[in-house]
């Protein structure tokens, strides 16, 4: 893979992107206008927990980003959620964490009250 974000340099910039904000989401569309049901589900779950300030990157705007983040996290699908620079999972995992109550705990570790 020779595209920009798959290069060593690109992967380094992705590392900076996920560490820059406590909560980072790579999604299709934007929080105001999600372009896919799974991305929308992540936005809604975060909203339910009062997480308003998070970094959202639209992979539909940037094919290099779309491929680069998959390589970076070794995860084949979008959306992807990161807490404190660490990969949490996709929509299924976030939903199950929401249902089990684990999400409240993880957000508390970040200093976010649900």
């Amino acid at each position: 893979c020779s595209r920009l974000l798959c290069s060593a340099e690109g992967q380094k910039s992705l590392e900076e992107m996920v560490k820059k904000d406590k909560v980072v989401v790579f999604m299709k569309g934007t929080p105001a206008q999600p372009m896919c049901g799974f991305s929308n589900a992540v936005v809604q779950i975060l909203r339910m927990h009062g997480v308003d300030n998070y970094a959202a990157y639209n992979v539909l705007d940037d094919q290099d980003l779309r491929q680069g983040v998959k390589t970076f996290s070794n995860w084949p699908t979008i959306p992807q959620v990161f807490f404190n620079g660490e990969f949490v999972g996709g929509c299924d995992i976030l939903l199950q964490m929401h249902q089990s109550g684990d999400l409240v705990e993880e957000l508390e570790k970040l200093g976010i009250r649900s």
Partner: peptide
């Protein structure tokens, strides 16, 4: 959970 899903993703890569 994350590790379980990774197992499945790898199996169906």
């Amino acid at each position: 959970l994350l590790q379980r899903h990774r197992l499945v993703n790898t199996c169906l890569a």
